[in-house]
């Protein structure tokens, strides 16, 4: 991983503050999240205090600071999904998979994020598991999906 970060860093001019966000986005794309080690590397390279980088990154929802689960669930809370009571679905996921929004289970299998809009309002309520979208969710449908991923041996 450290090599990848080295490589990404080298794409940006050292000490140029306005490339901070694209740089962080790049790291997140590669690593899936921003670990404290990677931010420390960025801090050294850009000559920006660690805490300032964390301050910037924690402002944006797009940046994650923990490792995603092997099954990364994103439940949409945009307006349309909200009207379709996505919070009920969120509660169901939290209960079944024993994971809270913003967390990853200890075994690293599941993680859950609440997102603002996935751009699939016509099929609200919407859930993404990794890159796969699930639309027009009903509770039964959701329960079936959840028990499937829960029972897979991986």
């Amino acid at each position: 991983m450290e090599e990848t970060i080295e490589k990404i860093l080298r794409k940006y001019p050292a000490g140029k503050k306005d490339s901070l966000i694209p740089l962080l986005q790049d790291i997140q794309r590669e690593a899936g999240h921003l670990s404290d080690n990677s931010i420390l590397e960025v801090s050294r390279y850009m000559n920006i205090p660690l805490n300032k980088i964390y301050g910037v990154a924690s402002f944006y929802d797009q940046f994650k600071f923990r490792k995603k689960g092997r099954y990364h669930l994103q439940i949409c809370h945009g307006t349309a999904c909200h009207i379709y009571r996505s919070s009920l679905f969120q509660a169901e996921i939290e209960k079944t998979l024993q994971v809270k929004a913003g967390q990853t289970t200890k075994d690293g299998r599941f993680s859950l994020d609440v997102v603002n809009c996935l751009g699939a309002c016509s099929s609200a309520p919407t859930l993404f598991i990794n890159e796969t979208p699930y639309g027009n969710l009903t509770l039964e449908h959701l329960q079936k999906i959840l028990s499937e991923i829960k029972d897979t041996n991986d």
Binding site: D36, P49, L50, N51, K52, Y54, G55, S58, F59, Y60
Partner: peptide
């Protein structure tokens, strides 16, 4: 010139803290 603490998070959830919400027992 240390910037050991800063604003973390956004809006009503913002707080003053350290990176990764570690305690003050940090390098900076």
């Amino acid at each position: 010139g240390m910037s050991a603490i800063g604003i973390v998070g956004r809006g009503s959830k913002s707080s003053i803290g350290t990176s990764y919400n570690k305690g003050l027992n940090i390098q900076a």
